[in-house]
């Protein structure tokens, strides 16, 4: 249990909007054993050096979700991030508030936008009178049905995923990974009676803005893997409603596009997604690209064995969304 301590340089973002013109980075140095969590280091700063440092924390055991912050630019729980590896990789520990949420003070951010997205997906069981709960008894649920949730019940709403997400950063119309993973949790819950409505609604409320970049899955401290659940939502949405939005039309269009020849027909894909009229809007850009890359207007050769691709489609493509 006794590891020798090392001197760890900390640089902590400090900013009180009421009194500071701009943020600054306060430097501290502590002697710490390498397994020491960053949270412990920050609490020592508060207790021994500077009680004015403001931050959120509570359980220190990665279950309450309070202490998410940027640690060397990565969205992480401070209580679960040991100083040793960060020191080895970066020579110092830079601590900053999470992204995509306005700073209240120092490491404390305003989570209003994050909670709003969560509430917007209606995170509660929606029942209907034709399917009442069994009186005085729990609903039966098989272990296989519980498996379908995957790890979404582990989410502690820490917002590390929200902080890490480039789509959240770029577009307020994107609900963020947590809200979508939470929506998935309700869509696969056998007790919820609104699966169809939820899937239809989310198609027009940002589902297809997910970039599938997996930065959320990388940041998540609880292995929820939100990007994979979002992928599931996309497929479920197409099955529920067909290809009605740009995003679903593009995915289904792509699926149909390569069925034919086993390889992508770029021009055809543009037409499938935008429609013949929408394509006109792309004309200027298309010509610009064509000047450098004239072969884009030619149809590609089919692959050898395109018939095999066709047969695989016949076996596995249930035609969902192709109408």
């Amino acid at each position: 249990m006794s590891e020798p301590t090392v001197s760890v340089p900390l640089e902590v973002y400090r900013f009180d909007p009421a009194t500071d013109a701009k943020p600054c980075y306060q430097k501290y140095a502590l002697d710490l054993a390498p397994h020491t969590p960053v949270l412990t280091a920050l609490l020592r700063v508060r207790a021994e050096v500077d009680p004015t440092l403001s931050m959120r924390y509570s359980c220190r055991s990665a279950i309450c979700g309070s202490c998410a912050m940027l640690i060397n630019s990565k969205s992480r729980l401070a209580c679960e991030t040991p100083v040793g590896p960060e020191l080895a990789a970066h020579g110092r520990i830079v601590v900053e508030p999470m992204r995509n949420q306005p700073v209240v003070r120092d490491l404390v951010v305003d989570q209003t936008p994050f909670w709003r997205e969560y509430r917007r997906i209606e995170p509660h069981l929606k029942l209907d009178k034709d399917h009442p709960m069994p009186e005085g008894k729990p609903n039966p649920m098989s272990p296989a049905e519980v498996e379908r949730f995957h790890e979404t019940p582990r989410c502690i709403a820490c917002a590390a995923c929200y902080s890490a997400c480039p789509a959240v950063e770029a577009d307020p119309a994107f609900p963020g990974p947590m809200a979508l993973a939470k929506l998935y949790r309700f869509v696969v819950d056998p007790r919820d009676q609104a699966h169809q409505d939820r899937l239809v609604r989310i198609q027009t409320e940002g589902l297809w803005l997910c970039l599938r970049c997996h930065l959320c899955t990388e940041a998540c401290p609880k292995d929820v893997r939100p990007s994979e659940r979002i992928r599931d939502l996309k497929e479920l949405a197409i099955r529920a409603q067909g290809a009605t939005e740009r995003g679903s039309r593009h995915a289904v269009g792509f699926k149909e596009n390569i069925r034919d020849r086993g390889t992508l027909n770029e021009m055809k894909l543009v037409r499938q997604t935008y429609g013949p009229v929408g394509m006109l809007g792309q004309l200027g850009q298309g010509v610009r690209i064509w000047r450098k890359k004239p072969e884009i207007t030619k149809r590609p050769h089919p692959i050898q064995g395109a018939d095999e691709v066709e047969k695989i489609y016949e076996a596995l493509d249930d035609g969902s969304g192709s109408k």
């Binding site: 593009h250 995915a251 086993g262």
Partner: peptide, 12 residues
């Protein structure tokens, strides 16, 4: 054949 480019994965 094409790998599906991520879009096929979204569809099926």
């Amino acid at each position: 054949s094409c790998c599906g480019s991520g879009f096929l994965d979204e569809a099926n």
